[in-house]
Design a binder for these strands. Structure first.
Lengths: 249, 249
DNA sequence: ACGCCCATGCGTACAGTGTGCGCAACCCAT
DNA sequence: ATGGGTTGCGCACACTGTACGCATGGGCGT
């Protein structure tokens, strides 16, 4: 009652034990994991150090004992999430099927964590985290084994396509999520404005017919779009293989 | 002396005229243009409404008379910058050469304004600005004229690749700019750490030999990488053309 | 068994952010 | 001259990342 400003200047014995006994306390791993949960749930701009700390029953600045900076935290989150991408081993018979699987896994990861694209778009690949290195290594193994004369170029091209497509999708899905509507619903609601914006652009009317169709099965159409582009890319890459490489052993 | 808190409660006749006479005052266009200048110069996180306003000799909140929100400002900036992308007219003889020119122009724009990728990565293409619509329209014209059975799919694939490649480059260039070193210098300095990170990933050693070479002519190698992927993509797309479409008229 | 040290947690504080609100000044039409 | 609508702005609020320094307690050397 006397000291109203400071609620607990008196270490009154209890409320002191539990803090350390209840949990192993903070750890970089726990912080990163919880950050990913928050990012997935509420998007990139909903993550603040204070909210994250609150979620971990910790004070805001306590996090800085385990993470140098918020940027570093994001870096760690990116690498963590990269661990979810599965790249088939290099000894698979068919490099092309393996590439499709890897691409699909990459895309799925990017859509499961839509903030990934934004972060990568801002920071690029100066990352060097263990999971990212492992990913690169497996991709390299795949394309070397397949017989590409210039595996690095081939890989970078493929990844550029996959990233470009995925990040466009992720951004769209984020917009959908923020709108609170279903994907089809948002398309329908956006249609009139889009049509008006297309006024005078004669080549776009056809595109919007397609967009209208998209409202019926948006997910399927996105899948198809990705598959189309991926096949295009792989067809082009196949041409770079030394003549006579068999499609399967 | 008496009223120290408010420096100019007295409208002392002068210091009143110039404000409106000197300039047409704020305007959405002027705001957007200055924002782009700042974004280009100091990157995306250096743009704040207050600093932008200061640059325009205006109060921070005055901007809100012409722009609803910072996000809207970014949207306007994106569309403005899209106006710089040049897509050859559809009547060019060779669709492929035209596509190369368009892709190069897109890439150049994205590298001139490295923040573009970040923004697009976060917001996607719900944008519908006039320049973006015009861009889409010209691309559509090009691919329809070329005879693609599914022009929208082809375009989206191409753009996905170009965006993916450009945004990776843009992110890298941003990192370079922030480091204050030359591109070659940063590569050299990063090399040891990269090599250590590659420890145990046997397929990556070759990639780093290439990276070392890159230090000699980073710009040329980035150009080559982009060109390679673009050719891959276009080769793949060419296969989708109805049989017998001539490469030139 | 005791005392020390250092890793860990946190309260406070600071500079900066986007933006809502309401007042003041100005331009133009009457 | 008057009134109204547009434009600019000062203030304020809630919130951000993070530097600093104190308190605490577990693990170690003696």
């Amino acid at each position: 009652m006397a000291a109203d400003k400071k609620p607990q200047p008196i270490p009154s014995v209890w409320t002191r034990r539990p803090r350390t006994a209840e949990q192993p306390g903070l750890s970089q791993d726990a912080i990163v994991r919880e950050a990913i949960v928050m990012l997935d749930a509420d998007g990139i701009e909903a993550l603040s150090m204070r909210k994250l700390a609150a979620r971990l029953n910790a004070g805001a600045t306590s996090l800085y004992r385990h993470v140098a900076t918020k940027d570093e935290l994001m870096e760690l989150a990116v690498d963590e999430v990269f661990g979810e991408v599965v790249v088939p081993p290099a000894d698979s018979a068919d490099w092309r099927a393996a590439a499709v699987r890897a691409a699909a896994s990459f895309r799925a990861t990017a859509l499961r964590h839509p903030w990934l694209s934004s972060v990568l778009g801002q920071a690029g690949l100066a990352y060097l985290g263990p999971n990212l290195m492992a990913f690169s290594n497996r991709m390299a193994a795949l394309f070397i084994k397949a017989g590409f004369p210039d595996p690095a170029l081939a890989i970078d091209s493929l990844i550029a396509f996959v990233m470009g497509m995925s990040s466009a999708e992720a951004a769209w899905l984020t917009t959908v999520a923020r709108s609170g509507e279903t994907e089809a619903g948002l398309i329908a609601r956006l249609m009139p404005e889009a049509q008006q914006a297309a006024e005078g652009h004669e080549n776009l009317t056809e595109a919007y017919v397609q967009a209208a169709a998209e409202a019926l099965d948006p997910v399927g159409l996105r899948d198809a779009k990705f598959a189309y582009g991926l096949e295009v890319m792989l067809d082009g890459l196949a041409l770079r293989l030394p003549a006579g490489t068999p499609p399967a052993e």
